[in-house]
Amino acid sequence: MSESAKFHYVKTMKSGFLVVPFKLPKHRALKKDAGLNNNSFHYVYIKKHVNKDNEEEKNCLFAINLPILSNTEFIKKVFNDICSKNDTIAYIEKLLQYDEFGLEEIDLSSLTSDLMSNKSSEDEQAKMNENRYTPRNTCLIKFVDESSLENCYSSIKKYCDLIQKKKEKANFIEWEYVSPSITTFINFYKPIDIDYLKEDISLHMKIFEERENTAR
């Protein structure tokens, strides 16, 4: 059996998610002896996001399993590639609630601020927290307007249709990872610039005081 024959494509999940495959780039450390295929794919699961209550979350695609270190710029590029195959354009505004390392999964600030806990009822409090909550490994891709969203979504669909049709012979979009360098990892140890730190603190304290004053 040839390796490419292993490519098996499911276009939509029962829950309505479109399965969007991306071909993965070669890496010098990934050799066949580790049992890897020549053709590896990453799958992103996409669905239109519906939240009528929240203005902020209008015109969004709900995405599950974006590849590691995806950022807005890069998502824009990839989705534009898909759209351009379809001769269309879609404007992505930003990624919402994209927290792949779970650093901000819990907002300690709002949970500890007595301004919030005193002023709002428990229900409101819970709701406020609930609103910003999406599961890990998911995010919202926000488009500037509805037509952008529609353009993009239909292009993705067509991209998926094509893959379903042509299988491994389809013209896949190849994912380009954003690779950190060693410096990224040793930067964690690097001193923070003192002037930046001072400025940041004075700014923050000013805002905090203002907020406190308003609360009073």
Partner: peptide
């Protein structure tokens, strides 16, 4: 990081994880 098996089932996408680690 999962790959679909059929419209309902998925499995861990080992190759993709390797690629992610390799790039990371």
């Amino acid at each position: 990081n999962v790959a679909p098996i059929d419209a309902e089932m998925v499995k861990l996408n080992r190759d993709s994880i390797f690629h992610e680690i390799a790039s990371f």
